[in-house]
Structure formats: C-alpha cells, structure tokens
C-alpha cells in the first residue's frame, strides 16, 4: 500500500467541499439546481482525475529510465547529490 494519508485526505476533503459543501450553500434562486449540478460534476470529475493519477503512481511497476545528462542534472538541481566512488 503506497498511499500516504495526508494527500488523500486533503484532496478528498477539498473536492468533497466543492462537491458537497458548496452545493449545500448555494443561494436559493432559479438556477440553484443548475449550480449544484455544475459544482457536483466538477468535484466528481476533478477528484476522480486526481485519484487516478495518484493511484497510477502508487505502486509503480517500472521506474523511470534516465539518460546520463538527465541524472547529472537531477543530482545538481534537485539537491540529490551522487555518491562518490
């Protein structure tokens, strides 16, 4: 299980807020239902899209294959120095 609690909680809560919280708060009016529908669909789509991306990377079956200069660049700029020797 390669899931971390915090990101999952955070993004689920975020889109949950958009998809459930905001529709509850929409003001009454002729377009109330339409706005609710829009918000819920947005939240559902965006959350699922994020979730798929997250889960696809959770347990990677392959690792990235890097070229030599890419490795050197990562080591230099992503603060990930190569070991000596």
């Amino acid at each position: 299980m390669g899931a971390a609690f915090f990101p999952i909680f955070f993004f689920t809560a975020l889109w949950g807020g958009v998809g459930i919280g905001l529709p509850i708060m929409t003001p009454k009016g002729p377009h109330q239902n339409l706005i609710r529908c829009i918000l819920m669909l947005t939240a559902a789509c965006c959350w699922l899209f994020w979730l798929c991306c997250y889960m696809a990377q959770m347990n990677p079956l392959i690792g990235p294959r890097l070229k030599r200069d890419a490795i050197q660049m990562i080591a230099k700029s992503w603060d990930n120095p190569l070991k000596d020797g």
Partner: peptide, 11 residues
C-alpha cells in the same frame, strides 16, 4: 553514472 548511458531507477 559515468559508465552507463542510461540508467533505470528501481521502484
């Protein structure tokens, strides 16, 4: 790194 043109990280 110097010896290999490409390297694949191991998940």
């Amino acid at each position: 790194v110097m010896d290999n043109k490409e390297l694949q990280l191991n998940p």
